[in-house]
Amino acid sequence: MADTTHEKPSETRSGALLSVRDLGKTYAVGSGEVEAIRSISFDVRAGELVCIVGPSGCGKTTLLKCLSGLLAPTAGSVALDGQTVLAPPKKMAVVFQEYGRSLYPWLSVQDNVGLPLKARGVPRGERDDTVRAALEEVGLGHALTAFPWQLSGGMQQRVAIARAIAYEPEVLVMDEPFAAVDAQTRADLEDLVRRVWQDLGVTVLFVTHDIDESVYLGERVLVLSSSPTVVQEDLSVDLPAERDQISTRALPQFTELRTHVHEQIQRAKRGDRAGLPA
């Protein structure tokens, strides 16, 4: 069931859309250094939905910032479509955990979603259509003129997802997007992500600290070790494509997978690095 390869091929696999090679990040802190990420390598093929899960403080956010071109790695590289990522790529959209800070309170919902298109020079009429379609996709077709702060947390995160959809990316990167919403809303948003992934055929990279969420959402789960971080396990999730909050979570495979990931995380927390790249 679990494909537990630790070593990844060093060359880009054919069909890889996103390719991370020996990525490392060391922060200079005062006169010393803190190694947040030691060496991470993995590939994501076009159209995959990959979850990245790891113990808290393992550098998930650092990894994501390096992937999305917001932070320069100190070692290794990230390539999107064969091009090394040095700045935020046009083909990538990011959904941040802190929706309240990522959405601009002075802009209405439609202006928030439309701003990246405006910056890209998309003409008004076309922009309005794209924005409306994106908001309808996330079930917020009625909230165009509202302001983000008038909406609940879950709805705000939907707006952020709509903004990402409207940007028409090839890769959608999500950084613990549902960490700050309640359980019920979270379940709805998870299903929304699966639906968007299926509807749009976009590649999704979903970072989370929630083991159940990673297994429920992903077609593949990358388990990170504790800091200094490496990929501890690359696990493919053989659950049916159509997932359901109740029946899928009740499947024996689901339980097995989550138990397996759980054990890996526990191992990571203990700092058991046997068999991992040094």
Binding site: K65, S68, G69, L70, A87, P88, K90, M92, A93, V94, F96, E98, R101, S102, Y104, L115, P116, K118, A119, R120, R163, Y167
Partner: peptide, 18 residues
């Protein structure tokens, strides 16, 4: 300027003027 708001602007390709 909020760091998350700034990261958002950068990752969505907003130029200097925008």
């Amino acid at each position: 300027v909020d760091p998350v708001a700034r990261d958002t602007a950068r990752s969505y390709g907003l130029g200097r003027l925008h």
